Amino acid sequence: MTDVLLGIDQNVDRAVTQAETMLDLFDATDLDANLLHDFVDNPEGASVKQVDSVKRARDILEDAGAAVTLREGSGDPAQSILDMAEQLDVDLICIAGRKRSPAGKALFGSVSQSVILNAERPVLTCGSPGDEA
């Protein structure tokens, strides 16, 4: 069984790309996909089951026969991804990169960059065609 952690943000197109990439790389019937959405700020108490991007990725993976578990975190998204990957001892982390200018990265940071630099396991970065900052 291949255990993967997909860090899913709010963007449905990026989540679809992540799910489809997992199906391109792995046999769905041998895939255990953990879909993590981090609520940086969640005053209304939303659930990961309510996030459209997570629901879309889950549907794609489950329809193909993959085992899917929904997970949620709070606080710093990069740290949530790293902590969950460590806790679950996954084989691979899959994140969705966003196109940002160098100034945008400096001002706002980069979840992808932080995960790539600090992960102790392979990280696959996916982007969606025409993705904008």
Rank of each mutant, 00 (worst) to 15 (best):
T2Y: 11
T2M: 12
V4R: 11
V4L: 13
L5F: 04
L6N: 02
G7V: 04
G7Y: 03
G7F: 03
G7N: 03
D9L: 12
V12N: 07
V12W: 08
D13C: 11
T17P: 00
E20D: 05
L25G: 00
T29F: 03
T29K: 15
A33W: 03
N34F: 14
H37L: 07
H37V: 09
F39H: 13
V40F: 07
E44G: 07
E44V: 11
A46I: 10
A46H: 15
S47P: 10
D52Q: 14
V54R: 04
L61R: 11
D63R: 11
A64G: 11
A64S: 12
G65M: 13
A66P: 07
A67M: 05
V68D: 01
E72M: 10
S74C: 02
D76I: 09
S80Y: 02
Q87M: 00
L88G: 04
L88H: 01
D89I: 04
D89G: 06
D91N: 12
L92H: 00
I93S: 01
I93P: 02
I95Y: 06
R98I: 12
K99L: 12
S101F: 01
G104C: 06
F108K: 08
F108W: 07
G109V: 10
S110A: 08
S110H: 03
S110G: 09
V111L: 08
S112F: 01
Q113C: 01
Q113R: 06
S114K: 14
V115H: 04
L117K: 07
L117T: 10
N118Y: 01
P122A: 09
P122G: 03
C126Q: 04
G127A: 15
S128I: 02
S128H: 15
G130Q: 02
G130M: 05
G130S: 07
